[in-house]
Each structure stands twice: as structure tokens, then as C-alpha cells.
Deep mutational scan, measured.
Amino acid sequence: ATNIVGKVKWYNSTKNAGFIEQDNGGKDVFVHKSAVDAAGLHSLEEGQDVIFDLEEKQGKAYAVNLRIK
């Protein structure tokens, strides 16, 4: 899926990971530091509006192509 709108639920820069809550009510999506880095960002803030694509690896959904809304 592409161009999904959501809000950062939480992001821990020590653990280099967090979750994004989908505005469409879907399951929360894992976001890794690699996606944050690829977006040219240093970190994510709780409640921040984002747009992202979903990629599945080994049955788990990940946020990729992250951008700030």
C-alpha cells in the first residue's frame, strides 16, 4: 500500500524504532531508523503527521518512503 496517512504513536531514538498509527484505523505500523534516515530526518516526534508506504517482510508490516505531511 502507498501514501498511507498516519501519526507517530511513539518513536524511541535510543532503540531506533517506533510505531505509526494509521489514520484509516489499520494496525499500527513499525518504523525503523533506516526509514527515518532515508527521509533525511533525525528523529520523529509523537503526534507528528506522516505519509508512508507499507512494505511487508517476513509477514510484518514496515513503514518505508516516509515523509512529513
Rank of each mutant, 00 (worst) to 15 (best):
V29N: 00
N3Y: 06
D37N: 13
T14K: 14
D37G: 07
Y11I: 07
I68D: 04
D28R: 10
E45V: 14
K7I: 07
S43H: 12
L54S: 03
Y62H: 09
S34H: 09
K27N: 10
A61P: 08
G26Q: 10
H32N: 10
I4R: 12
F19V: 12
F30C: 06
N16D: 07
H42T: 13
K69C: 12
K9F: 03
D53Y: 02
V64H: 04
E55W: 15
F19L: 11
Y62N: 06
V31L: 07
N3H: 08
I68N: 05
H42M: 12
D53I: 03
W10R: 05
H32E: 08
K57R: 13
L44V: 03
K7D: 00
A35E: 08
V36P: 01
L41G: 03
G6F: 02
Q48C: 08
N12F: 07
N65I: 02
T2S: 10
D37R: 14
H32S: 11
V29Y: 06
L41N: 02
L66G: 00
W10Y: 08
S34W: 11
E55P: 01
A1W: 12
Y62R: 08
S34E: 08
L41K: 04
K27M: 10
Q22N: 07
D53F: 03
F30R: 06
I51E: 07
K9G: 02
W10E: 03
Y11L: 10
R67M: 04
I68E: 04
V5G: 11
I4E: 03
D37K: 14
V29Q: 01
L44H: 01
G40N: 08
K33G: 11
L41D: 01
G25M: 07
V64Y: 05
A38T: 07
V36Q: 02
A17Y: 15
L41E: 04
A39Y: 03
G59C: 07
A63T: 02
E45Y: 15
A1M: 13
V8N: 01
N24V: 07
G25N: 08
L44A: 01
T2F: 14
G40H: 07
A17V: 14
I4P: 01
G59N: 08
H32K: 08
S34A: 10
E56M: 14
I51W: 08
Q48R: 05
K9T: 03
K69R: 12
N65E: 02
A63V: 06
A1D: 09
K57H: 11
F30E: 05
G59I: 02
S13G: 10
L41T: 03
Y11A: 03
L66A: 00
S43Q: 11
A35K: 03
L44Q: 00
V29S: 02
A1G: 11
N24Y: 08
Q58M: 13
R67P: 01
V64A: 06
A63G: 03
A17F: 15
L66Q: 00
K7W: 08
Q22F: 11
N24K: 10
A61K: 14
D37W: 14
N3W: 06
N12R: 09
K69V: 14
S43P: 09
K60T: 07
I51K: 04
G40S: 06
L54G: 00
D53A: 03
N16G: 15
A1S: 11
K69P: 12
S13H: 12
E55Q: 11
D49C: 15
Y62I: 07
V64R: 05
E46R: 15
D28V: 10
S43K: 12
K9R: 10
T2Y: 14
D23K: 15
N3D: 11
G18C: 03
K69G: 11
I68V: 12
F30W: 08
Y62V: 07
F30G: 02
D49W: 15
E45A: 12
K15A: 10
V64I: 11
I51P: 00
V5R: 15
A61H: 12
Q22T: 12
T14M: 13
N16T: 06
Y11E: 00
L54F: 05
T14E: 12
K27T: 09
V29W: 05
K15L: 15
R67V: 06
V8E: 00
W10C: 10
V50E: 00
Y62C: 09
V29C: 03
K27Q: 11
K60R: 14
V29L: 03
A17I: 15
Q58S: 12
S13C: 14
V50K: 01
A38E: 08
V8I: 10
S13N: 11
S13P: 14
E21M: 14
Q48H: 05
D37Q: 14
N24C: 11
N12L: 08
E45C: 14
V50G: 00
V29A: 04
W10K: 04
T2Q: 12
G6H: 00
Q58Y: 14
Y62D: 02
S34G: 08
G25P: 06
A35C: 05
D23W: 13
E46V: 15
Y11R: 02
V50W: 01
I4A: 06
F30T: 03
H32C: 11
